[in-house]
Design a protein around this nucleic acid. Structure first.
Lengths: 326, 326
DNA sequence: CTGTTAGCGCATTCAG
DNA sequence: CTGAATGCGCTAACAG
């Protein structure tokens, strides 16, 4: 069933059918009704593919991220998908994992499918090996990157000021009498480095750096590292992390050693995920405002696709969340 | 830049270009090289839209679920997306929320975009109001439903035996001396009812039903309900739930009242999410094997799309996970 | 092994 | 306000 069948049965031309399908004004009411009757009769659904071939757009955008199982990415992806739907776009979801070839493969697929834009979620997409593919794509369609920055034309970036978040939390803890700051992180990325810099700057200014350790992501990894550090006799009274999950591992490591939180040691997570509300004591953390970033990403995209001017780089302020671990 | 431009520059016909693009055998090596050279020169990417118009397939399927921020759905969606990619399909992600109109709207969009199939994730998609839309779609393309069942032709269902999970857990707890069973759940759905039935049957057989309560989803809601029940003097020594998050709320409610887990009360979650590893004590729960369900969904889909016969209904066995709360 | 031709289903001129 | 004609970029016969 296509537009020809409808036209024939309604006794009009395909142009007219197309017009009523697209809500054009220039159709006599009587004609419109004739067509709509047939449309309804067959419950006709036009083919977005054929339309796409003409308009060169499928009203679809690609959301590219590492792994949707990560709460952080899930949140942003969800927000983006919902905001896009409202402005008439659907989302192709791409979980690339950390493999660069996969990332490139997904990018290629998205250009084949002629998406109207690509939204990269996560600072791991700021990678020298991706520079060329991203540059190429950005020549065709706008590229939005959440939590990192590309300097190319037609790329737009939304970031949270991660550096400041760490700085301010260290500062806060120093005011509360903490002196020996430990930092555990699990990602050596663009935004990971910003956090690290913030920690280093503030910790050395307001106290001492008791240690900085890059560990694998996961509760057990963080718990083990904590226990190892405890055994080695390192002194610390505050632990900051790049992710809630890591902080929860720290909590468990401390508990096993009978160390009271926050009395003896303060612990701080990152992302303000639901996890931070599941542990005990409730985790102090940083709200990196992923929902706001997602919404901004779509807002910028909408502006760009509408031909309006849009900010090339937006930075929003994180929010410190004080709960029971500080 | 299209197939004509390539053909002209390579000095061949568009059919030949199409052949090398699709890896056809029937091309002389020399010819192939000529074409490939031009392809590379312009970094040519064929249009999936145009191809789709001919083949009537965009190699895309729709993943329809409530909300990807829910860990359970995120897991299944991720697994499905990955498995699909391997067999050459991409995924349009649809977060419908609970609104029925939205669900229908997404379904309509997916048929417009001519997806090759739709995978419904979650038993909330077994809804009388969706019967007709699902029936209509299933006449066009296969519909897979995870965690529920539709009896229509060309629909396929993957389920976890939720009823048995609850039965077995109650039984286990009874063996360990528990007698007064409480059940808190947050979803009045197809699978929700199965869990409930399992609980009722086993609890009344092996002990007493101390209460069954439908509450809103969330930690606080569960914690408040727990405290309310405690105040009201209801006696119970085991709490089962339909979701880890609810169980964690119960844990917090009990803690506030100084009730020891598992010494005085056992608590059981559902889904074996990462949340169950974040709380203290570590939560006993049910692994509903969403990864396996996701993989099975794609396996069945692959069979169907390949014209093979596939099981219309598959049920897999859940696994009880014993940690510290039982 | 290669080229010609004919659509796929729609949007979009351009006439009338 | 409506219709005829054209083409989007590709695949799939069908000839040769």
């Amino acid at each position: 069933m296509n537009i020809y069948d409808i036209a024939k049965e309604a006794g009009v031309s395909i142009a007219t059918v197309s017009r009523v399908l697209n809500g054009s004004e220039n159709v006599r009411d009587l004609t419109r009704q004739k067509v709509e009757k047939v449309l309804k009769k067959y419950n006709y659904v036009p083919s977005a593919i054929a339309r796409g071939l003409m308009t060169n757009s499928m009203k679809t955008i690609g959301i590219v991220t590492i792994d949707i199982r990560n709460l952080y990415y899930a949140n942003v992806a969800h927000t983006i998908e919902q905001a896009l739907r409202i402005i008439g776009f659907n989302s192709i979801l791409c979980n690339t994992g950390y493999d660069i070839e996969q990332k490139i493969g997904y990018l290629r697929m998205l250009t084949e499918k002629k998406v109207d834009s690509v939204i990269l979620v996560g600072s791991t997409f700021r990678d020298p090996l991706l520079d060329k593919p991203v540059l190429e794509i950005s020549k065709q369609i706008p590229v939005i990157i959440v939590n990192a920055y590309y300097g190319y034309p037609n790329t737009y970036s939304i970031q949270c000021d991660d550096r400041k978040a760490l700085e301010k939390f260290v500062e806060y803890l120093a005011h509360r009498g903490r002196r020996n700051f430990l930092y555990l992180y699990d990602a050596d990325t663009f935004s990971g480095n910003l956090k690290l810099e913030g920690f280093q700057k503030a910790a050395s200014k307001h106290g001492n750096i008791a240690g900085i350790h890059l560990i694998r992501s996961g509760i057990d990894e963080a718990a083990n590292k904590t226990k190892e550090l405890l055994r080695s006799g390192i002194l610390f009274d505050a632990v900051l992390t790049s992710e809630d999950l890591t902080a929860i591992g720290v909590l468990q490591g401390l508990r096993e050693n009978g160390i009271a939180v926050p009395e003896q040691v303060s612990v701080v997570g990152y992302n303000n995920s639901i996890l931070s509300l599941c542990c005990h004591p409730l985790l102090s953390t940083v709200d990196s405002r992923m929902e706001d970033m997602g919404k901004l990403a779509v807002k910028v995209l909408h502006q760009v696709l509408s031909g309006e001017r849009a900010e090339n780089s937006i930075k929003i302020a994180p929010q410190l969340i004080f709960r029971q671990t500080t």
